[in-house]
Design a protein around this nucleic acid. Sequence first.
DNA 1: GCCCTAATCGTCAAGCTGACGATTAACGGG
DNA 2: CCCGTTAATCGTCAGCTTGACGATTAGGGC
Lengths: 223, 223
Amino acid sequence: MGHPPFAVTVDLVVLTLTGEELCALVVRRGIEPYRGEWALPGGFVREDEDLSDAARRELAEETGLAPGTVHIEQLAAYGAPDRDPRMRVVTVAYLALAPDLPVPRAGTDAADARWIPVRSREHLAFDHDRILADGLERARAKLEYSPLATAFCAPEFTVAELRRVYELVWDTRLDPRNFHRKVTGAEGLLEPTGRTTTRDGGRPAQLYRRGKAELLYPPMLRS
Amino acid sequence: MGHPPFAVTVDLVVLTLTGEELCALVVRRGIEPYRGEWALPGGFVREDEDLSDAARRELAEETGLAPGTVHIEQLAAYGAPDRDPRMRVVTVAYLALAPDLPVPRAGTDAADARWIPVRSREHLAFDHDRILADGLERARAKLEYSPLATAFCAPEFTVAELRRVYELVWDTRLDPRNFHRKVTGAEGLLEPTGRTTTRDGGRPAQLYRRGKAELLYPPMLRS
DNA sequence: GCCCTAATCGTCAAGCTGACGATTAACGGG
DNA sequence: CCCGTTAATCGTCAGCTTGACGATTAGGGC
């Protein structure tokens, strides 16, 4: 039987919050196939590179961000036989979450790069619509039971900024008072810095850092 | 740059509940590398086969089970450069959950196959210890907020049988009365058949089928 | 000093959870 | 046929969490 040769790529669902909405990073393809169309950033895994290293490398190439400031986790693998017309390609998708980012720069294979609001439902090349949808669902679900929302915030943030993350990602409104009670009561989620800020306007707000908890308990349920 | 050739495999974390504990399916390798050692069942993805089809095919080959009766979902991809000494191999792991299964049969590349209790922490070939651990954690976590526990049960099951799934997978004890109240109250989880059984001893119990809900709400938290 | 904006603190009823008592319905003896 | 055993299922109750929403507080701008 042997083992047919495959190409392996990584693709990235990079999410950030611009001022008012949840956006994903897309690049305009500079090469065939799908030349000129928008797609998720990504590329081939190198000969001696681990999958997660490849994902981090592509992320750095596309965003120019210091690796430490961005949360990244594996999303899923996609390998339908006809997903790439050139050859048999299996892609391992990664989900990356970042605080408000500068305008992206074009990468090696990308003629252009930009943020698209996820609610625009713009069509992407390959099976990237599906991958983006899966990444979104993963992010939305993980906000419920993990401290993942803090990945969208700067290192120091206020409760209101954290709440805005939930509101934008879930596209919903949350009561500020109940939200405050809940997150400040969740063990290990927030670590007070002692300092305050007025950057959100109004009464000065406490600044927090992300705490040590890996799990949000009790969870923040969407119902 | 081009695209270095990879081999792509699927590996399976197949879990079942034997009488008293949670077990995983392992096979003894009949070929190099790691010949003679225990490993997760799996094999190469074929030329024109989707990843999930390959996983289902391997599952059928190893267990001889009708595909419809087994829950299967993608777990993660593993692709460290040195994970297989022969060549560069990326594996896509799948998690399968099945009701109490017959003794497995040896597959093509497997000299032997058997169930090992997961708490035995037996050492497996390649990086399969890690894959098994990830599969276990996925299963344990998904019991909390999904109807996944029903995948360990026969098509018709009692509340007590469902409770035993939680108890064995989480290795914990649950109060029968509170558990009963919770699962019978969860919208869409259970669908009564109207019939009863005494196969668990004691007072006859209602038989249920799995309901239509994809999500368990409110979730069953482990605290 | 006054108004505006948010942050933060309180209150209260409703729902959910954990602990545990009580009742019910079959089974296997004797 | 009565009895003890085994589980299923129903109830009760206090404590906790949640959702809705009022009240207070502290800067910033005028």
